[in-house]
């Protein structure tokens, strides 16, 4: 299933929630929507689900040579931001009901339910009411409800919320498994470390606009076009020696045995290293890449500054 979103806008009574957002999602990839509260992620998700329509712009979903203006219900698994199951019904009843609504026969629904409950170690709790489960376990049941019918696309709004680190890792493994099975996964999250491990491509949003988009490498390039390399040496380095060796470079002395150089592009790295190796014995060279969290924070800060200006 290929999803192409083109210049969509969505306004509510007093708020412009989405402003000219475009992106594509390819079949079988994990696509992440990132942004602070009110960035417009949930509005986009609701439009993809078909709960609301964009005011302007288009959403085109291609599936088996058919075109839709939202993801077809039968091919969609959805985990809403505000969890939606029946707390006074058992885990089993909740899952079987939703699976049958998705079109599964009772036998298939039971088979699928048993499979997923086993994976999430909830088999023994299947007869308990949902409200008796911890928040984390309720979250797992909700995840099962989203994939029990093996849809082509799964949309997960904040799938890591309420989970401890161990269970967050389990969800990461679960989502990778979904990708391996060929499902397209669209998720929104605040846990950058998790998203970094998972997402093939991502969209960073603020106040309804796209701030950064692409793969992690592409986002790094957009957010941090200049690379920083940390060089450690065997012998002592002084600021004077650096000034003579790297006269036309942007360098920074770090310690008696290390310094960093900011490079404009990758060809500069070869040039820089040749000059350094001519004067020092190099013990280690480390590319200082910012993680997604740092990129996210700096991008948001830049965006806020830009908006203020």
């Amino acid at each position: 299933m290929r999803i192409a979103v083109s210049a969509i806008e969505k306004a509510y009574a007093t708020v412009q929630a989405v402003r000219g957002v475009s992106f594509t999602i390819e079949p079988g990839e994990i696509f992440a929507l990132l942004g602070p509260n009110g960035a417009g992620k949930s509005s986009i998700i609701r439009m993809l689900v078909g709960m609301t329509l964009p005011d302007t712009g288009t959403i085109q979903v291609e599936y088996q040579q058919q075109r839709y203006n939202h993801i077809p219900r039968r091919q969609l698994g959805y985990l809403p931001e505000d969890r939606g199951l029946y707390p006074d019904k058992s885990v089993e009843k909740n899952l079987l009901y939703l699976a049958q609504l998705h079109g599964l026969s009772k036998a298939t629904a039971q088979q699928q339910m048993s499979h997923w409950l086993e994976i999430f170690e909830l088999t023994e709790r299947r007869h308990e009411d949902l409200k008796q489960l911890s928040k984390g376990n309720q979250q797992k049941v909700q995840l099962i409800a989203a994939v029990i019918h093996r849809p082509a696309v799964v949309i997960l709004d904040e799938p890591f919320s309420g989970l401890d680190p161990l269970n967050q890792e389990k969800v990461v493994a679960f989502l990778k498994e979904l990708r391996q099975q060929g499902m397209t996964v669209i998720l929104s999250a605040h846990q950058m470390a998790m998203v970094e491990k998972l997402a093939d491509r991502m969209l960073l949003m603020a106040k309804g606009k796209v701030v950064l988009a692409g793969t992690l490498a592409e986002i790094r390039l957009q957010a941090q076009p200049k690379q920083v390399v940390l060089i450690e040496t065997e012998q002592t380095v002084s600021e004077d020696s650096l000034a003579s060796v790297l006269a036309d470079e942007h360098w920074q002395w770090q310690s008696s045995h290390s310094f960093s150089v900011t490079l404009a592009n990758s060809t500069d790295l070869t040039h820089c290293l040749q000059r350094v190796l001519g004067s020092f014995t190099v013990r280690a060279v480390t590319m200082q890449a910012a993680d997604l969290h740092q990129l996210y924070v700096s991008a948001m800060a830049e965006h806020q500054q830009g908006s203020a200006a």
Binding site: G50, R73, L76, Y78, P80, D82, R83, G84
Partner: peptide, 16 residues
């Protein structure tokens, strides 16, 4: 009750 417990969104994605 379903609106308040947010079951609505879940069901909306499954049935018309």
């Amino acid at each position: 009750g379903e609106k308040q417990q947010r079951v609505t969104e879940q069901l909306f994605a499954i049935v018309t």
